[in-house]
Amino acid sequence: MTGFALGAEQEEWCGQLRALAADRLRPLADKGEPGRVNRPLLAALGELGLLERVFTSGALELCLLRESLAYGCTEAETALALQGLGAHPVLGSGTPEQRARWLPEVRAGRAVAAFALSEPGAGSDAAALALEAVRDTGSAVDGGGGGGGGGGGGWRLSGEKCWISNAPEADFYTVFARTGEGPAAKGVTAFLVPADRPGLSGEPLDMLSPHPIGRLSFDGVPVGPQDLLGEPGRGFKVAMDTLNRFRPSVGAFAVGMARAALDATLAYTAGRRAFGGVLGDLQAVGHRVAEMATRTEAARLLVYAAAGAYDAGSPDVPRRSAMAKLLATETAQYVVDHAVQLHGAVALQRGHLLEHLYREVRAPRIYEGASEVQRTIIAKELYR
């Protein structure tokens, strides 16, 4: 691609993905139960090779994938993204044994991954984690699901995680806990914790979300050196590397929703007769749609630029990723809201595309760093 347009092959691929989302994935999503993992949908994403793309694509290709799926089926996009978010630390920081055990299952859609960072008192302030990892000096413990436990070289996890996507139904969790090598972010370690590990339990939360979100409780959960993701005390870097990788593509998810809302609005206002003509002929309507389109295009370009910077190894990735996530998610909220306004009451009917998007579009302004956090990151990077 150039700095301003996709190539012909990329445009064709995106079109194929949008059609695939609408024709193959949307029917599976519609059969899913809200608040539960849709395993048939995950299996289809695996069979189609789309989960494999999450781990083999560059950041730009990942953005195109997420944007195109979001246009046709937000549930499929979210299922795919959560697999990537939960398993990317395994890909980037896991041992050969961890990768061999879990990544083929994730890519096939057979194992469900989850990224367990947020806590009741540490959502946006990720460095303030309270989940404690205490050195285990007792005898070795068979942790199940691939090992774990003491022998003097392990830890016991105690505390809570909250607002964790795919919890409590995930098969394994990337968990960030305080091991105390240093203050704040310097004392956080990342672990791979299988769901069947003793002392680990969870409960679903009743959230405005089509996928499960839950709370996890750790009651002396045993983990050992073989469960480490990276080095002790370097877990915050594992978390930030993952978030920097995925933040531009959260923006792409938002752009996909905005483009779907915009296209629906163009079609509706071009055909809806009112006041002696069609809605699109009214200057107030035309100007509103023009603003929606301009903001969507600006967000799309910023997302692609951030992804390109990540692929190029640019040092300003944190700033660009934060800008892309901020603008795209705020833009999608604006576009979907105005699309609903221009459609009127019909858009509020249960099952209407815009009723669905209106519920879906709110969460991305919060997760993986709320808009306020993105502004803080941008400011710090500018003054660095």
Rank of each mutant, 00 (worst) to 15 (best):
R375M: 13
A254G: 07
R350A: 13
P89N: 06
P225R: 13
R295F: 07
A185C: 04
G152Q: 08
E360W: 03
A100W: 13
D125A: 09
D23W: 10
L157E: 07
E52V: 06
R320F: 01
K325N: 00
A284P: 00
T174H: 01
E47I: 00
L64I: 11
T329A: 00
E97K: 12
L62I: 08
R288P: 01
G277M: 12
L85E: 12
G313N: 14
G94Y: 11
G72P: 03
Y367K: 04
E381R: 14
L282P: 08
F236D: 03
G94W: 11
H88K: 13
E77S: 04
S217Y: 10
V278D: 02
R178V: 10
P27G: 14
F253T: 12
A79S: 11
L51H: 07
T294Q: 15
R362P: 02
A290P: 00
C73A: 08
A254D: 05
T2P: 02
Y268V: 04
D125V: 14
V373I: 14
A79L: 02
P34K: 13
R24G: 00
T179H: 02
Y71W: 08
Y310N: 06
R350V: 10
E330V: 04
R234K: 01
A70C: 07
G147T: 01
A81Q: 08
L342S: 05
K186W: 13
A298E: 12
E330L: 09
R375A: 13
A126F: 04
G15K: 08
A43G: 12
L326P: 00
G251V: 07
Q349H: 14
V285R: 03
L348K: 07
Y367D: 03
A284H: 12
A108I: 03
S68F: 11
A133I: 09
A252L: 11
S201K: 09
M240H: 04
V238S: 05
A190P: 01
G149R: 15
P34D: 09
F275M: 10
S139M: 05
V278H: 14
R156I: 13
L229Q: 03
T376N: 02
E132N: 05
L228C: 00
V54R: 09
T137A: 15
M257N: 04
T74C: 01
P364C: 07
L28R: 02
P210Q: 05
G123N: 06
A322G: 03
V112W: 00
L205Y: 00
T78K: 03
G256H: 15
N38Y: 06
E75I: 03
L117G: 06
R245Y: 09
T179M: 03
G109S: 05
A111R: 12
L42S: 12
E381T: 05
E9D: 14
L354R: 15
D316M: 03
S371F: 08
G149K: 14
L20V: 06
L20Y: 11
R53S: 14
D227G: 01
A126T: 07
A21V: 06
H356L: 11
L80P: 08
R135Q: 10
L326R: 05
P204Y: 05
